[in-house]
């Protein structure tokens, strides 16, 4: 089966489907809650409230430096729960596979999902597989949903943001977007570009367990840090100023962005949080974050303040100030 490819019959619901599910998915996701024989899984729950999210993942190429679509599909959902102050517990997954897709690749993807879920302390408890004819898909699309348990009674939401708050970035910006672009090979980019895709629930849990008060928290995925900050500023009715010199940026991402004419603050990340918290909590928070492998580059990058315009500003490295607006459309490589 390992040298085999996906055929339409793998999605027909018969013996072939069963075989695929048991050989690939059940083997990779194996855990006491996973019930491949029934239509749904029955799960224990102890709290009054749960946190739930879902997201669908499409990425070209499916495998890129630092990760693959499987890791992305689990981490994205885990992080969406984490930023609400919840620990992921259960994950569901749906696959849309294209006819002809290599089963060996599917196995790698499933194994990445298991690894990421293990790291986040979650289990994959139910799933679904469909197969579409050749050229009707892009190899594999994955949907995941996640259920999380709240680890803190704090309300973490943009409305909590107050003038005087500090803004923390937990890592260097732009790594995921540039790694994917370079893996596509379209622009002849080479170099140490590596996606930051990572499950951040452990890091968030460390912060919350230490009693750090957090006003708002977002993972800066599509649209990058600048887009998240604009959304926060608008919702909270405040202005935010980011200090350009403080923003962590790798040499490789900086160079690639300069060549392509991209602004790294608008490039996607998959393992970076924007955290807004009372200024007095900053030092403790940074200490905890920096002790974590996904937060070693964490910095205090900006401040919240009250201005008539609810804008995001960038204090540039050369000592001027400019607007960091919401991004429009996709960033396109420029002509010269």
């Amino acid at each position: 089966m390992k040298n085999d490819i996906i055929q339409l019959s793998h999605g027909a619901g018969g013996r072939q489907t069963q075989r695929l599910v048991s050989r690939i998915f059940a083997a990779a996701f194996e855990n006491p809650c996973l019930d491949v024989l029934n239509d749904a899984s029955v799960l224990p729950w102890e709290q009054d409230r749960l946190v739930m999210t879902t997201d669908t993942y499409v990425v070209t190429p499916l495998f890129f430096p630092g990760g693959d679509i499987g890791r992305l599909a689990v981490c994205g959902t885990v992080n969406d729960l984490a930023v609400m102050g919840a620990m992921p517990v259960y994950i569901s997954t749906g696959f849309i596979l294209e006819e002809g897709f290599a089963i060996a690749d599917l196995e790698k993807i499933a194994s990445s999902m298991r690894q990421a879920a293990d790291e986040a302390g979650a289990v994959i408890v139910t799933g679904d597989t469909k197969v579409v004819p050749k050229h009707k898909g892009d190899g594999v699309f994955i949907n995941t949903a996640g259920i999380g348990r709240l680890v803190s009674e704090q309300t973490i939401s943009a409305e909590q943001i107050r003038p005087g708050d500090a803004v923390i970035l937990t890592g260097s910006v732009g790594n995921h977007g540039l790694a994917v672009i370079s893996a596509r090979g379209e622009f002849g980019l080479k170099g140490p570009l590596r996606s930051d895709v990572a499950p951040l629930s452990g890091m968030v849990q460390d912060l919350l367990r230490a009693g750090i008060r957090i006003h708002a928290m977002r993972d800066a995925t599509r649209g990058g840090v600048a887009t998240v900050l604009n959304e926060l500023a608008e919702t909270a009715g405040v202005s935010i100023t980011v200090n350009e010199s403080a923003v962590p940026l790798s040499e490789a991402v900086h160079s690639a962005c300069t060549i392509l004419g991209f602004d790294p603050l608008y490039v996607a990340n998959e393992g970076l949080l924007v955290i807004v918290l009372p200024a007095g909590e900053t030092e403790n928070a940074l200490q905890i974050l920096r002790g974590h492998k996904y937060g070693s580059e964490a910095v205090h990058a900006g401040e919240v303040h009250q201005e008539a315009n609810h804008c995001v500003y960038l204090k540039t490295a050369i000592g001027s100030r400019r607007m960091l607006n919401m991004r429009s459309g996709e960033q396109l490589p420029r002509i010269c």
Partner: peptide, 18 residues
């Protein structure tokens, strides 16, 4: 439209919102 366009520069960097 263009990443080098004057209107895009003014819009992106928010001259109109100052």
């Amino acid at each position: 439209v263009s990443s080098e366009g004057t209107c895009a520069a003014h819009y992106k960097y928010g001259f109109h919102r100052k």
